[in-house]
């Protein structure tokens, strides 16, 4: 029961970029298209799950004074794994995400979960937590990417869906569009949340 609970909290109750307002930089930067959002989300999910498991395994061995530094090294190692495998097998995505792949290291969600959850709970719970948070993060990025792609280029996942006379707003693909879009989505989430 607890396991299911730890998994599902990341999906709605504590969706990282919306509810906790963590990990905003990748959320804003790579979501010019839904596909990039999915790619970034999956890369982060992999790092989150792996680092949560390893931190939970080592939680009794790591002295608390140097714990943050140790977590950063663990996270950075997994980020390098993701970076190199993406370079080898998904080069186009690697190009599109650019410097934001190495920057997963400083994504506050990953370090935040290691410190707040994995360092206090066992391996299975930490894995569920990481997986839930990761999937929640992926969903959030996909939604933002989808909205920006729909309005900014009139398509979703590269498939054109808007009517033919639709004039795309180039604004949505630029930096201001990202901020405004995320701001409105957060506001809408708050409205939905307040009704319940």
């Amino acid at each position: 029961m607890r396991l299911v609970n730890e998994f599902t909290k990341g999906l709605w109750r504590e969706v990282p970029p919306f509810r906790l307002v963590l990990g905003l930089c990748p959320t804003l930067a790579v979501t010019t298209a839904a596909e990039n959002g999915v790619g970034m989300g999956l890369a982060t999910t992999f790092v989150l799950v792996c680092s949560n498991v390893l931190v939970a395994l080592l939680r009794k061995l790591i002295p608390s004074k140097v714990r943050i530094a140790s977590y950063i090294v663990i996270i950075a190692s997994f980020v390098v794994i993701v970076e190199l495998s993406m370079q080898a097998y998904a080069y186009k995505l690697y190009e599109a995400l650019g410097i934001f792949i190495p920057l997963i290291v400083v994504n506050c969600i990953v370090l935040g979960r290691a410190e707040a959850f994995a360092s206090k709970n066992n391996v299975v719970l930490s894995m569920a937590d990481g997986l839930g948070m990761g999937i929640g993060f992926t969903m959030a990025l996909t939604v933002i990417g989808g909205v920006r792609e729909l309005l900014g280029s009139g398509s979703v996942f590269g498939v054109h869906v808007m009517w033919s006379s639709f004039e795309p707003f180039g604004f949505m693909l630029k930096a201001p569009g990202a901020f405004v879009c995320l701001g409105f989505l957060l506001g809408i989430m708050n409205i939905i949340g307040a009704k319940k």
Binding site: L182, L186, A194
Partner: peptide, 23 residues
């Protein structure tokens, strides 16, 4: 402020406007 937009959402929208000015 409209209640649901108070805090971070409005902060983000303001950042968007500032970013537009910088464009």
């Amino acid at each position: 402020m409209p209640k649901p937009f108070d805090g971070t959402p409005l902060g983000l929208i303001t950042a968007g406007l500032l970013s537009m000015a910088f464009l």
